[in-house]
Design a protein around this nucleic acid. Structure first.
Lengths: 125, 125
DNA sequence: CCCTATGTTCAACGTTTATTGAACTATGAA
DNA sequence: TTCATAGTTCAATAAACGTTGAACATAGGG
């Protein structure tokens, strides 16, 4: 396991890659949940998303989210804590992330977004 | 040639499909150019985009843009006039289209966006 | 030390995607 | 009618994508 995964610099974040990353339902759900978590200013672990897919598939999506600059991974022991790159994204593409998040919230029932209770349930597991 | 291509209703427009559509550089350039054209409240023909790719490839991208609900095609003689579905998109995903357009404008040099002169040049051809 | 928990990496697979050129359709003009 | 123009459709190709399970790496707890 590499110590700290590579992330692009703020200027290296590209619009098409970000949009492509957000276009996958699982990745959109991950980003959405990370955005919800921002309000409590804490991070989430990979295992918090097992309700969405298997861990190997999640690792694949996490890598995509990191490579395109949407999220940041911090290694702590055997855990990886992740959070949105809110400041970088707002600087590069003002209003974009919020528009996507609130659009996703409007369609929460169509998109397989994890509710808070599902998150807690996955957490208990 | 079918008389009028099928378009999804406003409610059928899905966020992941829209984001995926916008994630392709050619389609993003098309949408960007259509957004510029909104200011003059006129439409654009398929041939106005020949600078971006060949016409068969453009027809493929136009179909994608229609199917995901981003644009509308009106048949007039041998021409097809296209415009953004601004009202529907703003109703479904408030602020999203504008955020994408202005983000694209900021990165105009990285993204292969057609400038106005290139549009005119392609038009003369 | 061994065992478990947490994630990543790899190979394999089937699917979808973007791109190309050729064939086709339909309209309008001469 | 004939010809040119504007776009679509089709078939073929190569590349990228998402998903799966097995193997691997690493850290912490007994």
């Amino acid at each position: 396991m590499s110590r700290t995964p590579l992330h692009p610099t703020r200027e290296q974040i590209e619009l098409p890659m970000v949009l492509d990353c957000l276009s996958d339902p699982i990745r959109l759900a991950i980003v959405y949940q990370l955005a919800q978590q921002e309000r409590v200013s804490s991070e989430l672990r990979c295992g918090d998303f097992y309700a969405l897919s298997g861990k190997s598939n999640l690792a694949y999506h996490f890598a995509k989210l990191r490579e395109c600059g949407l999220m940041l991974t911090r290694v702590a022991g055997t855990n990886r804590f992740m959070r949105l790159r809110r400041e970088d994204l707002d600087a590069r593409f003002p209003g974009l992330l919020d528009a996507v998040i609130s659009s996703a919230a409007k369609d929460a029932d169509r998109l397989q977004l994890l509710s808070d209770c599902e998150m807690v349930a996955a957490d208990r597991n």
